[in-house]
Design a protein around this nucleic acid. Structure first.
Lengths: 239, 239
DNA sequence: CGCGATTTGTTCGTATGTATC
DNA sequence: GGATACATACGAACAAATCGC
């Protein structure tokens, strides 16, 4: 393990152990190797490894039991498919028992220049913004901001609040089907808002998608920016 | 700015400024706001902001000039398209002047169980592993490990070393065309190897793709794991 | 040209966090 | 657990460069 500035050693080690768990590295035993072994492996003091494990225990990823070892509590990642018919709830429907969508807030506003170019709107057109969060089995899965042309989709906020689904809300407003046109994927460090709202750990990673959906005629109807915790989600693109 | 343990404050702030620059947040002025303003904005001491800016200057993203301010040097991100005909060099060909592929090493080995299921091989089949790195205009863009069935693609390592391109190497071995079947995308913290080989900063983010390519008949020919620096790359999926 | 306002660069000191032994 | 070394963060001042008037 390499000494690096700006990130505490114990956090670097916590990140690597977390990644190892996510990749099923310790699957055989179902537990993390002993602290002394990890300390030697990473070339650090055992105190440092203990700090890392303590942080992981705080996250609920592992549980240290005196005399037995450090047990792995959960290591499941949701696979989120992206394609022409990308649907949030449907995509991960069989991977979780309980999927919920919460309306955090909504507002009608004037579209920004950037948004206008995405939705192909005249400058100054009004749009409805919907801030939402989605949970699967009690764990936050995403935080999204979506914009819809206001004149066509007035009332979509209430429809979403009632149905907890964009697909169903759009159906209520006369769009029975829609298609994913383009998806951009990038990754950034979690912002304080991510940490607070999705229960992430500081310094963790957030996958960001920017997506454009169109109706069956190819007319843009929704532009959305969605933030996913990288340790709970991976994307799958079938070409 | 929220105080968080394990990650230095100056690093959190550097991450946020870097993200802001990448999103074109400061585009109007072409420079980052004054240190005093940033300090107030993030609720930290000016020293801390200076440490963050110093790190960004080290990366070549900004340049601080006494009396003038902090100029933005670079805010380009490569857009890497993913689709049925995903090609590395072709995808970013018009975004960089000089794209190179280096063969780091290659070896013939027995395929792991996981790899066998991806490539639809019998257990125990031999494969050729190719470790490669790609640079665009001198900056590391990716680090990949690819596996090919050994009996069909013997000599592909030499072909890749000569052509610096998987596409051309496959063509030399009788595969004029191939198609991307599935791509998985996830994100992790940079490992020490990433930091060393791609010149990343500690604690930064790496986007990981796992991809399966097939020949025109749908027979799997290549499985590859590729690691991209998240601050230099974003993916685009056209559905 | 000088002047002040703005902005980065530097140097003290002090307190706390991190990592090792 | 205690001692030690180093990194991190804050605060207050002052120096030096740039710009507009």
């Amino acid at each position: 393990m390499q000494r690096q500035k700006g990130v505490a050693l114990w956090r670097q080690i916590a990140d690597r152990i977390r990644a190892n768990i996510a990749e099923g590295f310790y699957e055989a035993s179902g537990m993390v190797p002993p602290e002394t072994q990890l300390a030697e492996e990473f070339g650090v003091n055992r105190h440092t490894v203990r700090a890392a494990i303590s942080a992981l225990a705080q996250e609920g990823i592992v549980r240290a039991v005196q005399g037995r070892g450090t047990l792995i509590e959960r290591r499941d990642k949701f696979a989120f498919p992206i394609g022409r018919r990308t649907r949030f709830t449907q995509g991960i429907g069989d991977q979780a028992r309980d999927i919920r969508g919460y309306l955090l807030g909504s507002e009608e506003e004037v579209a920004s220049a950037d948004l206008c170019s995405w939705l192909k709107l005249e400058v100054g057109t009004r749009v409805i913004r919907i801030d939402a969060m989605r949970q699967a089995d009690g764990r936050a899965l995403s935080r999204s901001t979506a914009w819809f042309p206001a004149d066509r989709f007035r009332g979509i906020d209430e429809a979403f609040r009632a149905t907890e689904s964009i697909t169903k809300a759009l159906a209520l407003l006369g769009v029975p089907d829609y298609l994913r046109d383009v998806t951009e994927i990038s990754a950034v460090h979690a912002e304080p808002d991510d940490v607070a709202q999705m229960g992430l750990t500081p310094g963790s990673i957030v996958l960001v998608t920017k997506a454009l959906n169109t109706d069956a005629d190819g007319v843009p109807i929704q532009y959305a920016v969605t933030r996913f915790p990288a340790d709970r989600v991976q994307f799958t693109i079938r070409s």
